[in-house]
Design a protein around this nucleic acid. Sequence first.
RNA 1: GCGCCUGUAGUUCAGCGGAUAGAACAUUAGCCUUCUAAGCUAAAUACGAUGGUUCGAUUCCAUCCGGGCGCACCA
Length: 579
Amino acid sequence: MLKVENKILAKASAVLSSAYPNFSGDGLSLSFSPEIKFGDFALPCFLLAKEFKTSPMEVAATIAATLFGDDYFVKVEAAGPYVNFTVKPEFLFEDLMNLDQTDCVLSAGERIILEYLSPNTNKPLHLGHVRNGCLGMAMANILAYTGYDVTRASLVNDRGIHICKSMLAWQKFGNGETPESTGEKGDHFVGRYYVKFAQESDNDPKLIEEAQAMLQKWEARDPEILSLWHTMNTWVYSGFEKTYKTLGFNFDKFYYESELYNLGKDIVADGLKAGVLKKEADGSIAFPLPVDKFGLDQDDNEKRVTLLRGDGTSVYITQDLGVAHKRFVEEKFSQAVYVVGSEQIYHFKCLIEVLAALGFAWAKNIRHLSYGMVYLPEGKMKSREGKVIDADNLAAELIDLAKAAVLERNSDASIDNAEIALRASKIGLGALKFFILRVGADVDIHFNPKESISFDGVTGPYCQYAFARINSILHKASDFDLAQADLSLLGNLEERFLAQKILALPRKIKEAATTSNPSLVAGGVYEIAKAFNQFYHHHQILGEEDKNLSLARLALIKKTADTIKSGLNLLGVETLAIM
RNA sequence: GCGCCUGUAGUUCAGCGGAUAGAACAUUAGCCUUCUAAGCUAAAUACGAUGGUUCGAUUCCAUCCGGGCGCACCA
């Protein structure tokens, strides 16, 4: 809650307790005015009227009449059932200047592990991974900003039949070539063999059997296979590393499935002993899913989830049980967030249900941040059919587009190539990340490569542009001492509107953290940038005759720039001083 | 069949139960001798359907219709 809001509520509350003796203190809420011309804040009186058994207009009129002339306000007006407050600029803008990260604090260092991206080591990253990565990175930033002690983790899917497929294809058809010898990025190199396998196995089904045999050898720790596996994974990791660096995906910790896939078996054994889990006729172990939460299956039978195969080998969820236990019990995290696509909602629901049934109280601290599918004009992406947008190509394409735009805007200036590349990278990637993060995680994205990414409108570059404009103005005003600004000189509609948008950001950041929804931050930053652009076009900043007014406006836009920058940074979007 | 998500303008998206449902793209008409036109100003077009709860529903509930994802030994 902002200081101004507390002040307004306290004043309204005082009026109400004297006017209505039965005033309980409830039903009082303040929001930003829907239109800045009404005022800065609005107080709806519907609930109060109900409590007082009178009309909302009556209550609004009472508050407005009593606070009329109060020297905290420029204006207090009843508008039907609402009271609109216009706060004196010195109070409003002082609050604004004092906003900082402490207004966004939700936790004093609670340890939270956020797992995201989690790629397979048999092919390069695609657009779906980019969405995952952007969401994970942004959520990690937002949680850290709101005070959590965040560990960014990646669970690398580095074992299994799909890995063996690319290994086998390379062994058979590779002729000893390496990423070094062909000049390819390691993950693309290995991915090419994964595709090769798919093509060859269509004609020769025996290859599948060979791949399975290879997996068995791998599990038996066959030195030759292990060495090949290690070599090829190393190639992939070097490729991933470049992609992560480009896109700004950071990790504090990597978990490898090859080291974890046997975890969880003990938990299953304990659950069986405790009678929570059941042994099926075929020897497999399953958990019966409660009908009230999971419904019935297609044959109207109670649902269950298998936790261990009849032969004692583990399945996907077995490992997840073990990994969760490891994180909460051994590593002492108090919350775990998994950024995984919405197709696994059911899986996580089961995982949490099983853990809770097994008596682990921390099960409720698992959060699945699911996100919608990414569709291309031709439908859902499918790696095996080559229907994908490669992450590296996409990034490169956007950087190229941005580069063309930078060159066009600076045709007369001489900027060196390194600077051009730097700007192109920040703008192109800013556009990509903002595009992905500005929509809610739940909604499916329909990505049309030709049309989706633009640098105009609700985009990263639009926000970056507002920042660059401010920077350019501030650059010309270095002789002003912003600390001396007289904020009472501010207060026109555009300045108030801008202030309102900046004041609104901290609660959006907090809400983004609690609801796992970075799009709130993207929306908030965009609104600030838009409010600034409107202000900029309506008023001079440096050109004012009154130098004190210029100074006050400089202080306002400095705050605007700082806010845009920290907001964009939460989304992994960088700012630049000149565009 | 069941569960979850989703349906808002030609398109892509916003909208703690509250004032005239907001943007952007595309379209149309304006604005650069003035702090960066990746900008600003204006025009035009939308809540899938029907009930219910409420002073008030795009928002909550129910039913229906449309789209997506999923429903034990794949991950």
